[in-house]
């Protein structure tokens, strides 16, 4: 079971790479914001999987809760900025 979780972690890291490609490459700024959103969702899940892997979920789950909330604040700030400023 532990090795299974380890492979899940490596696979998630590779998937984050795909999103990172979109963040780096994205033609418009909104692509980058979307990629950031996807990365943070992945990071939340990756945190919980790391916690399960090291059998200390109770510590890691608090961070992932915080992550979800912070992600909301950041993305809303970016969206509001872009809505008022228009495309750079």
């Amino acid at each position: 079971m532990t090795t299974f979780f380890f492979y899940v972690m490596v696979l998630l890291a590779i998937l984050i790479g795909a999103y990172l490609y979109r963040v780096l490459q994205g033609p418009t700024i909104f692509d980058r914001v979307l990629g950031l959103n996807g990365i943070s969702t992945k990071a939340i899940i990756l945190f919980i999987v790391i916690g399960t892997y090291s059998e200390r979920v109770n510590m890691f789950i608090d961070i992932s809760t915080g992550y979800a909330l912070i992600n909301l604040v950041g993305a809303l700030a970016v969206a509001k900025y872009l809505e008022q400023k228009g495309l750079p």
Binding site: L20, V23, I29, R32, L36, I39
Partner: peptide, 8 residues
């Protein structure tokens, strides 16, 4: 945005 990703 990339700095935010870096922090993640």
């Amino acid at each position: 945005l990339l700095l935010g990703t870096y922090s993640f």
